[in-house]
């Protein structure tokens, strides 16, 4: 077997050189330049790949379970990529990526078919249910709110708003959102007033800047926190599945 493969690789390199000889601009390859025990490293790699192919095909032949067969086919695709990688050139590197993408795409598609075929599809009871949502929303929200106020401006508004969003999303809310809207409107007024000050009384620019910063902080924070109240508003927040029946 090994002799046959090394003979194959020898002819391969011979053809490569002859091809480069006749047609001058062909890409010259460095396939099999390093010798080890009288065999080029390409040959050794090819032998290894072929052994892997035999092992994986034998395993696939023996395996009966669909899920395990799916995993074994992924093994086979990896070997195909190894065979490309053996070339050891930039071109091979460029070829591996699309090969990998195709392999992953096939694997994803097949997994989806497996899920549908075995009827493993089930609506989750709660889409997002992690422990931190029950234990620490308040402290995280307060921390982010304070940090956002320190930052001020648009970024600060975003950070503070994320903190509020997190709080509302975890705890649920029964507030009237009209109040939030009202604050948002005042923030907008502050922003406009700041701009008028900028244009008419430029000497008070620092006051105008702080006004605008605060206004936009409040506005962005409130707009983002409204997102948090959009969660199913049953008053319990994510608390429903606290009893441990969530991830059965």
């Amino acid at each position: 077997m090994i002799a046959a493969i090394s003979a194959f690789a020898a002819t391969a390199t011979a053809i490569t050189t002859s091809a480069t000889g006749t047609a001058g601009t062909l890409t010259s390859l460095t396939v099999g330049e390093i010798e080890l025990f009288g065999l080029s490293n390409f040959t050794i790699g090819l032998v290894g790949a072929i052994i892997c192919i035999f092992i994986s095909f034998y395993a696939l032949m023996r395996e009966k379970d669909d899920l395990h067969r799916l995993l074994l086919t992924d093994l086979i695709e990896v070997i195909a990529l190894i065979a490309i990688a053996l070339l050891g050139t930039d071109l091979a590197e460029a070829l591996i990526l699309p090969g990998l993408v195709v392999g992953v795409a096939e694997l994803t598609a097949m997994s989806q078919i497996y899920i549908v075929k075995e009827k493993l599809v089930r609506e989750p009871e709660s889409y997002l249910d992690i422990e931190v949502m029950h234990t620490a929303p308040a402290i995280i929200a307060v921390g982010m709110l304070i940090y956002g106020i320190i930052l001020s401006g648009f970024t600060g508004g975003a950070v503070a708003g994320l903190g509020m969003l997190f709080y509302f999303a975890c705890k649920g809310t029964e507030e009237k959102t009209e109040i939030l809207e009202k604050v948002s409107g005042y923030a907008w007024v502050m922003w406009v007033v700041a701009f008028i000050v900028f244009m008419t009384l430029p000497a008070y620019w620092f006051f105008a800047l702080m006004l605008a910063g605060t206004g936009i902080l409040a506005k962005v924070a409130i707009k983002i926190s409204i997102l948090g109240t959009m969660r199913k508003n049953d008053g319990s927040g994510g608390r429903r599945s606290m009893g441990g029946n969530g991830n059965v």
């Binding site: 690789a9 002819t11 391969a12 053809i15 490569t16 091809a19 062909l26 390859l29 396939v31 390409f42 790949a49 192919i53 086979i76 695709e77 070997i79 195909a80 990529l81 065979a83 490309i84 053996l86 070339l87 071109l91 091979a92 070829l95 090969g99 195709v102 392999g103 096939e106």
Partner: peptide, 15 residues
């Protein structure tokens, strides 16, 4: 995909 990619790789290796 195994024979396809290995075939292409061998074409590249030999030519």
């Amino acid at each position: 995909t195994l024979p396809l990619f290995v075939g292409a790789a061998l074409v590249l290796a030999t030519t």
